[in-house]
C-alpha cells in the first residue's frame, strides 16, 4: 500500500501540494506541510504522485509498504 512521506524540515510552505491534493496535504500555521493521512489507495496514487512532484523543494515522496 502506498504511504506518503514528507521532509518537514525541507518544506518551505510553497503549498503547491495543498492546491493539487487537498484531501491528503494541508499546511499548518507555521507554513509547514501536514499529512492529513499517510496511507493512500493505488487508485489515488497517480494524482497524488503529480501533487508530490509539484513540490518545488522535493519534500514529498510516496513509498511502498
Amino acid at each position: 500500500m502506498p504511504v506518503l512521506k514528507a521532509d518537514f524540515a525541507a518544506c518551505q510552505g510553497y503549498a503547491n501540494c495543498v492546491d493539487a491534493a487537498p484531501t491528503v496535504y494541508d499546511i499548518d500555521d507555521d507554513g509547514v506541510v501536514v499529512l492529513l493521512r499517510e496511507r493512500i489507495s493505488e487508485e489515488e496514487r497517480p494524482h497524488i504522485e503529480e501533487a508530490a512532484r509539484s513540490c518545488p523543494v522535493s519534500a514529498l515522496t510516496i513509498e511502498d509498504e
Binding site: 510552505g13 510553497y14 503549498a15 495543498v18 492546491d19 487537498p22 499546511i27 507554513g31
Partner: peptide, 15 residues
C-alpha cells in the same frame, strides 16, 4: 509575505 497559511486559503478563494 511570510504567511503560507493565508496563501493557501486565498489561492483556494481566488480559484
Amino acid at each position: 509575505v511570510n504567511w503560507p497559511k493565508a496563501l493557501v486559503q486565498c489561492r483556494r478563494m481566488v480559484t
